[in-house]
């Protein structure tokens, strides 16, 4: 079985779209709990060994979002206490927590998405939609680090002439803007070389093909079918109302019906799909350790 990140980028792309999409639009505490759990595990499994410095920020965001709702929404039957004569209700608080879970889990899904869908892979997906757009993206990704380097050079050389002072804010701003204009001039003027280089290599001479190094194997097909099947089960359950859960005026709806349990199970499998390979890798790592230990 290939590593999850080795599947065809389109499969990975669709995976993230569905898993985050489902979380975004099913206001069901269990589904969202699974989503947050899966998103965190997926993200942590990709950043093993590295400290996630931003986790504090996201805990803060979670609490903020969770507590924001009861301050604005006062419907709900169970009044906990009053602030400025406004009732704070249990229902609104729970709704806030559920919403916060959704937002934070989706953010984490997208963080994993950024780690897995690196430049090349994303360009491949875009290339399937629009080769021209994809080429422009690729060119931009080539220009951005080039411009950053040139911006540093501009700053150094203008500083060493006293043309870019940083003694006070206004001087710094003026220096920065002139530096930017310099960069704009440099990049636009030199762009003509790029144009020549493209045309010299036949750009615009006819229909382009799109070179990709990713193939679509049976594994990819299998994974895609699995993802779509699991997603369909959840969507169908949702459409049939099995996942409905009301917050106002009173928390209502059965969370644990049989139909719902099926959807939960499917969604759990879905969020854990990226881990298949991790588990194998971990096993491989242990095996390697054992081997090394023997030596």
């Amino acid at each position: 079985m290939p590593a999850f990140s080795d599947y065809n980028p389109i499969v990975v792309f669709i995976y993230f779209l569905t898993v985050a999409g489902l979380a975004m639009f099913i206001m069901n505490p269990v589904i969202l709990g699974i989503s947050l759990f899966g998103a965190l595990i997926c993200f942590r499994s990709r950043t093993r060994g590295k400290k996630d410095r931003s986790s504090g920020l996201f805990i803060g965001l979670f609490l903020l979002l969770a507590l924001l709702n009861p301050l604005f929404h006062h419907n709900g039957a169970t009044v906990l206490f009053l602030i400025n004569d406004n009732p704070i209700t249990l229902e609104a608080l729970l709704y806030g927590f559920t919403s916060a879970t959704m937002v934070v889990s989706v953010i984490y899904w997208f963080r994993s998405f950024s780690l897995l869908m690196t430049g090349d892979r994303l360009l491949y997906v875009f290339g399937k939609v629009s080769p021209k757009f994809s080429l422009m993206l690729s060119m931009s990704l080539r220009y951005i680090p080039l411009f950053a380097t040139q911006a540093r050079k501009i700053k150094a050389s203008r500083k060493a002439l006293g043309l870019w002072k940083e003694d006070n804010l206004w001087d710094a701003v003026k220096g920065g803007i002139r530096g930017f204009i310099c960069l704009a001039g440099w990049s636009l003027e030199n762009g003509i070389i790029t144009v020549d280089s493209m045309e010299a290599r036949g750009y615009g001479s006819g229909k382009r093909s799109f070179y990709s190094r990713y193939s679509f194997s049976l594994w990819d097909l299998g994974m895609l079918i699995l993802i779509l099947a699991l997603t369909s089960v959840v969507i169908v359950s949702k459409a049939m109302g099995a996942l409905d859960f009301g917050f106002y005026p009173r928390i209502g709806g059965e969370l644990m019906t049989g139909a719902a349990a099926g959807a939960y199970a499917c969604y759990t499998v879905l969020v854990l799909l990226p881990l298949g390979q991790i588990i194998r890798e971990a096993g491989y790592g242990r095996e390697k350790e054992r081997k090394n230990g023997n030596h």
Binding site: S130, K132, F133, M139, S140, F180, A184, G191, G204
Partner: peptide, 26 residues
């Protein structure tokens, strides 16, 4: 994007737009 894909855009125009994108991102 689909509309843009269909139209023939000169290489120069495309390059300038790309440079402006990169400058904007910078």
């Amino acid at each position: 994007v689909a509309g843009f894909e269909k139209r023939r855009t000169g290489t120069g125009r495309m390059a300038i737009v790309t440079i402006m994108v990169a400058l904007t991102v910078t």
